[in-house]
Structure formats: C-alpha cells, structure tokens
Design a binder for these strands. Structure first.
Lengths: 149, 149
DNA sequence: AGTTAGTTGCAAGTATTTCGCATTTGTGTA
DNA sequence: TACACAAATGCGAAATACTTGCAACTAACT
C-alpha cells in the first residue's frame, strides 16, 4: 500500500498549501516521485497526456512549483525540468554544446570547479555556474497568505 | 576612443576563439558591455533588430555563450538573459510568483538563506536555489579543439 | 445533498528559439 | 590588393514551449 501512503501524503500537502487534492495533481506528483531524474513538462505529457490535458499539466507544474512541492531545474535546454522536493538534492554539470548532464554530488560551492572536475567522468572544462535563489517577495507574500510549505 | 578599444578587444577575443570578428557580433558585445543588467534576446532585438536579423542575434548569443564571452542567466521568466563576462558577478533573488529580481552581492553559498534574507530588502522567504555548473564535456571538447577562452 | 470556489478541458493564441538555403562578408594567402 | 573559401548572415517559415479565456466539472466545505 505504498501508493496509497504516498498519494495520501500528497493530498495532505496539497490541502495544507490551500489547494484541492485532485487526482490529476496527485498523478503528477506520483510520477515525479517514482522517477529519479528531473522530468520536462513534455515527459509528463507523454506519460499522462491521455488522462490530463497539457494545459492542465502546465498549470499543475506551476502550482506545485510555487508551493514548493516540486523543484524546477534549468538545464538551458530551452525548457524547464522538474523533480520532487525532498529527493536527494544535488547539482549538475551541463555541457554548453550538447546539453549532456552529469550529476554533481557531495559538493558545496566552496569546493569549486577544480574539485568538481576531479570528480567528473565526462567533463574536461567548467566555464561557469549558475546560482540563483528562488523565493517570495514581500508584496507577493501579502497577496498569497496561504503560502506555507 | 573607448569604443575603439572595446571593439578591438572584442575582435581579438572573437578571433582567439576561432570566430570571425563581424560587426554584428561586436555590436552585440558592445551593447551587453555598456548595459549593467542582464538582457534578454528580445532586448537585444529591440535595440539592434533593424541592423541585425533576429535569427542572427540568436545565433550570435549562442556562439558568444559557448565561447564564454557572455554569461547566460536563468531567471525562470521563460526566456534567457545574458550579460557580458567579466562584469561584477553576482547572484539573484527571483520571486517565484511575479519574477521580481533583486541582486545578491557578497554572498557565497555557505552564507545561506538566512544571511541572504537578512540582506534583502524585498524578499520574505527563500524556497530554493539553483546551482548548476556549465562546461564542456570531453566528447564535445574533442570536436571543438579551438575552444580556448 | 447542496453550494461554491477552485480546477480542468478544449482550442486558439503568444512567445521564444531554430532551420534551410541563397547571399554576403571576414580573413588568410597569393 | 585582389582572390578564394569557409564562415556568417538575412529571410521566411517552422518548431517548440508555454499561456489564456471560457464553459463545464469537482473537491471540500456546510
């Protein structure tokens, strides 16, 4: 009954953040939950598109992201990727030419490029990194008081 | 003769990385060079679009980015931003609701969320950050040996 | 069970970026 | 200084990614 536990947990999280626990949202969360790598919106549409309209999938991803139930990752592939919150958080090496991705574990930013490269199998050069913080500004925080998690 | 110096420097950088120093490329570099904030492709098109075709502007941004002459920044606004390399590198706070941006100076990742928030005027909450490294994988490095800078 | 705000499906629209191919332009060489 | 050629550009169209308006539906309250 793992499925049920997971989906019950997702329902709770959704309601806690002021949203309805619809079956569409739970399906998306479950899909992200059982997938290790970050998925694009298209990946989700490929799997759930027959049950859920694509506009709805985009709307769901937007809400889940705003509420922090999922994380967005930018690989600079011209589309966003998403992964479930709470999963092992790590960074990525992304090739500026071919977009190839490699995971970067056990690495603070202070252990910089040289260290990352030393641990890398496939990369020979780091050109730059992106570090951005995503949060809620004070004026938006006033407008959406339910915003907990 | 500041302009000439800058454009001569850009010419040198372009040739050094194996590309022609075309006037279009130099215009784009100069525009980014004299602008403090990161510009979107559309910003560049708005200013240079009469002289340079928009497909060309996208191609130029791609090359400059690959060669590391400019940096790409992802604000999650559904389009990329670019800034000239070598300019004061800093991070950003981006509101997940309205996209509002605030600069984050003097901050390593180790001085985490609490410290960033303490220095922030407009944000009340940080939900997540993105840290990605951008480099060249070994197989691409073989294919493009000229890749220096 | 009934009410209602919140959610979804549908179809069309917008925004962003890319492509193929003919023409032009830098750059190294004669 | 002119030549030759690879590289870069312009143009138009297309592909991709994401959004919107509105009518119909549904979860979650009473």
């Amino acid at each position: 009954m793992k499925e049920n536990n997971a989906s019950a947990k997702f329902s709770r999280l959704l309601r806690k953040s002021g949203h309805k626990a619809t079956s569409s949202r739970i399906s998306v969360l479950e899909m992200l939950g059982r997938t290790k790598r970050p998925l694009s919106a298209q990946d989700v549409i490929d799997e759930l598109g027959k049950k859920i309209n694509q506009a709805t999938i985009y709307r769901i991803l937007k809400v889940l992201k705003e509420k922090g139930l999922i994380r967005q990752i930018d690989f600079r592939h011209n589309h966003a990727h998403y992964e479930i919150s709470g999963s092992d958080e790590h960074h990525h090496l992304v090739c500026v030419y071919c977009g190839r991705i490699e995971d970067v574990h056990d690495c603070g930013i202070e252990n910089t490029y040289a260290l990352v490269l030393r641990h890398s199998k496939h990369f020979s050069d780091i050109r730059q990194h992106a570090l951005e913080f995503y949060g809620v500004c004070k004026s938006c925080n006033k407008k959406t008081p339910k915003t907990t998690q």
